[in-house]
């Protein structure tokens, strides 16, 4: 679980500068992000934490290019999202971003390997080749025996592993995770986090996790704490910096 990258000058994976996002108009107008500045580095697992309604998910959405924002600039692996047209952002997401959702969002009528192959199919790969590649990555996440299983035949942890395989199968550089462990028991949550931590070890990748789940804070290289639409603090995890796996951060 070493992360030698953190000892070097890390390159930025995500650079958010003065981003403002509002919802509604007039009296119902709500400012979800207030001139937010935020960074995520290549080769790190970054957690975004904070109370409900503080803007974590909104921040995740604008970084992922799934939500427009009014002001500010966002660079993801050198691409300026604020300058891209919607179709270009979609194309960027297709090639560079993997998603892991709280409720897994697996298509119930597809079996596990078909679910995992979806990003490859969206990218235009032929079905047979996509399913072969999906089967290979399912073995890596420990679900080699379950490739034909339907989502409802799998436990919560297994479903999230399928979702992780789906997020990784097209080899994206940025993995966006929304509460990946909140629907799982503690043991399964730690297994999932081990997997994500492994992914984050790749120097070209970055994993950003929005979570409330203080059971998994220990896996973060850094933690960004949000409050009222702003980034309050950024914590470095010294244990991670030293390459230790067992350190536990005090919840922010």
């Amino acid at each position: 679980m070493d992360n030698p990258n953190l000892n070097l000058t890390p390159q930025l994976a995500v650079d958010v500068r003065n981003v403002t996002k509002t919802f509604g108009i007039g009296e119902t107008k709500t400012v979800a992000l207030k001139s937010v500045n935020f960074e995520a580095r290549q080769g790190e697992l970054l957690m975004v934490v904070g109370p409900s309604g503080c803007g974590k998910t909104t921040l995740l959405s604008v970084v992922a290019g799934t939500l427009n924002f009014e002001e500010g600039e966002i660079d993801v692996f050198g691409s300026s999202l604020h300058r891209l047209k919607p179709a270009q952002i979609t194309e960027f997401r297709k090639r560079n971003i993997g998603f892991i959702f709280q409720q897994f969002n697996l298509i119930p009528t597809l079996n596990a390997v078909e679910n995992v192959s979806v990003p490859l199919l969206i990218g235009g790969m032929a079905r047979r080749a996509a399913e072969e590649k999906a089967a290979a990555i399912m073995k890596k996440v420990g679900l080699g025996e379950k490739i034909k299983a339907r989502p409802y035949d799998l436990s919560g942890g297994q479903q999230q592993r399928v979702a992780i395989a789906r997020a990784l199968v097209h080899e994206p550089r940025l993995i966006i995770c929304d509460e990946p462990t909140s629907a799982l028991d503690s043991e399964t949550g730690h297994c999932i986090m081990e997997l994500l931590y492994e992914v984050a070890r790749s120097p070209q990748c970055c994993v950003i996790i929005v979570t409330h789940d203080n059971r998994v804070f220990q896996y973060a290289d850094r933690m960004t704490e949000m409050e009222d639409g702003r980034v309050r603090r950024v914590h470095e995890n010294p244990a991670r910096k030293n390459g230790s796996a067992a350190s536990l951060l005090v919840p922010v």
Binding site: A64, T66, A87, T90, E91, R93, K94, R95, I97, F99, F101, Q103, N105, I107, V118, P119, I122, G123
Partner: peptide, 13 residues
């Protein structure tokens, strides 16, 4: 809707 939104997030145009 959720599945279609997920596909959209994953890059489906």
């Amino acid at each position: 809707t959720r599945h279609l939104a997920a596909l959209k997030a994953m890059g489906a145009s």
